[in-house]
Design a protein around this nucleic acid. Sequence first.
DNA 1: GCCCGGTTACTCGGATAGCACATGTCCGAGTGAGCGAGG
DNA 2: CCTCGCTCACTCGGACATGTGCTATCCGAGTAACCGGGC
Lengths: 156, 156
Amino acid sequence: MRMGQAVEWTLHSCLNLAWVGEPVSAARLAGIYELPAPYLNKQLQALVKAGVLESVPGPRGGFHLARPVAEITLLDVVVAVEGREEAFRCTHILRKGPGGDPDLDYSSVCAVSRSMRQAELAWRRELASRTIADVSDDVVRHSPEAPERVREALKR
Amino acid sequence: MRMGQAVEWTLHSCLNLAWVGEPVSAARLAGIYELPAPYLNKQLQALVKAGVLESVPGPRGGFHLARPVAEITLLDVVVAVEGREEAFRCTHILRKGPGGDPDLDYSSVCAVSRSMRQAELAWRRELASRTIADVSDDVVRHSPEAPERVREALKR
DNA sequence: GCCCGGTTACTCGGATAGCACATGTCCGAGTGAGCGAGG
DNA sequence: CCTCGCTCACTCGGACATGTGCTATCCGAGTAACCGGGC
């Protein structure tokens, strides 16, 4: 099970956007970590569609956070990039088994499916309980100069 | 982020193996749910390598659980099939950023990486706390005839 | 000096290739069971 | 009737195609800033 690299990229980009406070183009965001700019752009568009970011066209345009940092959770970003569907997908395997009901929704009955879902719920709960603001605080606590460094690196 | 279908297949197969108690070939296990037998065989081999199952060659051979059901966790099966590495992979993106140290191991320093790892840890903890025995009990509680049905379906 | 219009450069946004991994399939080596002959 | 050896069918195990989704890239539509001219 692999999570797309884009999650890492977009999370760091959200942090950087939070520290800058003005629209930043995908190209400049990508430049910070030497990432492929067009691809990052594509992922940021997913965040726009999810309502996490807002985009500003034209010169001096770019992306900026659509909400206060304290109201953007890690789950918001992960779901926006990776999609809403859960990792474990119940294919109703039991329907074909002995005593299986072809019309029953086993995703809520099958013990295997329920256990996997519960585990995934714990994961989601953890992600939902942590906001960009929390992560930013962590970073600042460890290296207070980080935001200023990013602002400097993003200066035109 | 998607988890392979094989996880669902192997989990149900482990349950069935637990209920039968004697070696069952991959072909018969696959027959229960009309799965592609060779592919299921491939996945069961992964469980053998991980020490979850044991294989018996020759006629009357097949697979059987390598340990008591109470000592096989869902995490054991998931790790065996999906691999040990975590879903979120820290690529040390910060090394390229402003003030980044090219030799530092950011997977344990970077706040983003730490948060993602913590969430994944919650997921793993949940999976590790649930054994095949627990799931089997759940099934039996809901439909006590299930094990007997499977034994019947696997009769030669 | 102020305002207005045109140009321009910069931005996002979606459509388009390339590649890796999960999925699905196949055949060969090994082995234990079953059968038959011999004692 | 019991024992031994052989044959054989059945099993796992790994090597071989295929499809889907992530990764990476490009170009076009739109827009706000900027500049120059006119008032």
